Amino acid sequence: MLKKEVDVLLNALDESVNSNSYWITLSINENENQFIDDVLQHLKTGSFHFELVKQDLTRGYNEYSEIVFPKCFENPVFIQKPGNVWNGNEMLNIEVISKKMVEDLLMDMLTGKQKYFSKSYLGTPFCNDEAKSIVHHFFKVLNDFGNWTSYNILPNFLNTIDDYYTSNHIKLGYFERCNKDLVLIFKYTHEVNILLINGSE
C-alpha cells in the first residue's frame, strides 16, 4: 500500500528530522503468529533490501544504486550496489504498540517537541496543527485499507551509516544513531507496511 498521504508523511518526516524515510510493503502469511518469522525471511533472502532499493530510487535518493551508461542504451540506467543493509541480527525486538502511541511518536518526529526523540538541527519542524493534519490523513488511509495492528521494532537490525564507512564502503548503512531512528510496522492480514526513519542531526 502506497498512497499520496503516505508520501506526504514521508516527505514531512524527511523535512522535520533530516531523514531518508521509506515505506516498504512485504507479503506475509495470514497466520497471526508467523509474521515476525516472515519479516525475518524477507531480511534473509534480500527481498527487504530489494524493496528498500526500489523505494530509494522512487524517492530520488539513489543511496543504494549507481548510474551506468551502457553503450547500446540511449539512456543511462541504475544498477543496485552489491550488499545488504541487514546486519545479520535475527533477534528482532518487535512489540505491539497502541495507535495512540503511533500518533505520539509521529507527532514528536514532526514537531521536534523532544518527548521521545532529540531535535534535528538540520531539519525543519512543523507546527502542531500542520503535523496533526498530516498524521490524521495518514491514519485515514490506514483505516480505509482495512483493520491494522501497529508494532515497533528496535532499530538495531540494519547497518548504520558508520558501518558503511568503517567497512570501507562494504556494509550498506541506514540507521544514523542520532536518537531519531524509528521503525514502525502496520500489519494487515496479508501484508506488513514498514515505516523506516533515520533522522540525523
Rank of each mutant, 00 (worst) to 15 (best):
S167A: 13
V102M: 15
L158G: 02
Y164F: 14
F138E: 06
H169S: 10
A131G: 01
I170R: 07
Y164I: 10
M101D: 11
L105Q: 03
V96H: 08
I170E: 14
G112M: 05
F157Y: 13
Y164T: 08
C178G: 05
L172W: 04
L92E: 12
F117L: 07
F117W: 09
R177N: 08
I134T: 01
V85E: 02
V102A: 12
G88W: 08
D144C: 00
N87R: 05
S118A: 07
V96S: 15
C127R: 11
K99L: 14
R177Y: 03
S98Y: 04
S150L: 09
N156C: 07
T166D: 06
Y164D: 14
F117T: 05
G123M: 13
H136N: 10
K119L: 15
K113C: 11
K100G: 00
R177H: 10
D129R: 11
L158K: 03
I97R: 05
L92K: 12
T111S: 02
K171M: 13
H136V: 01
I97K: 04
L122A: 11
Y165A: 09
F117Y: 14
L142D: 03
N156L: 13
N156H: 09
S167L: 09
D104W: 01
L105P: 05
S118T: 12
Q114P: 02
V85D: 07
G173R: 04
K132H: 04
F175P: 02
I97H: 05
I170G: 02
L106H: 07
M107S: 01
Y121T: 15
F117V: 15
T124N: 05
H169A: 00
D163R: 07
D108L: 09
H169E: 07
Y151Q: 04
L154Y: 14
T124F: 07
S150A: 15
F157I: 04
L92G: 13
P125Y: 00
N159M: 08
N179E: 09
W148E: 10
